[in-house]
Simulated scan of single mutants.
Amino acid sequence: MELTVYLAGQIHDNWREEVKEKAKSKNLPVSFTGPMENHDRSDNIGEEILGEQPDNIYKDEAASKINNLRTRVLLEKSDVVIALFGEKYKQWNSAADAAAAVALNKPLILVRPKELHHPLKELSERAQVTVENTDQALQALSYIFE
């Protein structure tokens, strides 16, 4: 059995690469997908497809529609979602992806530090597992294969 894992969460650091490397070192039969990590591409995709927009609000809305399409398709094809909420960056996309995973009835592993317990309490209640770091998330994922 191989699982597809959608890695939702902050895009301004290399946590996804670290998770992929650790999963590989554990020989976990998983493949990974996630949001567009090229920030410029994500911001400009609406205009690339639909043409120049009249202002930044329309540009953002056009890009959001295309990014939401991509995210929805990849989330629906995933078996498990790992959503990382860190302390450093605003987490709007993480929240949206995690909420979408819940709405699509996808198993969710929520990664968040203790300091974010209160703002994420409702989402944590909907997750199958809430952990404090990606190593714990990988341990939970590993347990599936035992």
Rank of each mutant, 00 (worst) to 15 (best):
A137P: 03
H117D: 10
Q139I: 03
S42G: 14
R41C: 15
V80T: 03
L116K: 10
P29V: 00
K106G: 06
Q139G: 14
D13M: 01
L120A: 04
V30C: 04
A137D: 01
I66L: 07
L3D: 10
E76F: 05
Q53Y: 02
I66G: 05
E61F: 14
E37S: 11
K26Y: 06
A98C: 02
V111F: 02
S94R: 12
W15Q: 04
L120H: 07
D55Y: 04
Y6R: 03
V81E: 08
H39G: 07
K88V: 07
P113S: 04
S78R: 09
S142C: 13
T33G: 01
F32D: 04
E115Q: 04
D60N: 10
I11R: 15
V129P: 03
Q136L: 07
P107C: 10
F32E: 08
V102A: 10
K22E: 10
N38S: 11
Q139A: 12
S64H: 13
S142G: 15
N105A: 08
L104T: 04
L28P: 00
L84H: 11
S25E: 05
Y143P: 06
A100V: 03
P107K: 08
D60W: 06
A96P: 05
R126P: 07
V129R: 10
E132V: 00
D43Q: 09
E146D: 11
H39E: 15
A96E: 12
E21I: 13
A137Y: 00
S42W: 11
L138F: 15
Q139D: 12
K106P: 03
R112F: 07
S78E: 07
K22W: 05
L123P: 05
L84R: 14
P54V: 03
L123S: 05
T4P: 00
I45Q: 12
E17Q: 08
D13R: 09
N67A: 06
E87T: 08
P35V: 09
V73C: 12
P119A: 01
P107N: 09
H117F: 07
R112W: 07
R41M: 15
A83F: 11
N14S: 13
A100R: 11
Q10C: 08
G9I: 09
L3N: 06
Q10V: 13
Q10H: 14
L120T: 02
L104V: 01
A127M: 02
V81Q: 06
A101K: 13
D13C: 04
N105G: 11
S78A: 14
L116P: 03
A127N: 09
I49M: 09
G9Y: 04
S42D: 09
K106T: 08
D13W: 02
G86N: 13
Q91S: 15
L116D: 08
Q136D: 06
I82F: 09
Y89M: 02
E37G: 13
A83E: 06
L28S: 02
G34M: 10
S94E: 11
L3F: 15
L110V: 04
E21L: 12
L110N: 03
M1N: 12
Y89G: 01
V73Q: 11
V30Y: 01
Y89D: 04
I66W: 08
D79M: 10
D40G: 15
L138R: 08
I11M: 12
N133G: 02
P54G: 04
E47N: 09
T4K: 14
N14R: 13
N44C: 09
T134A: 10
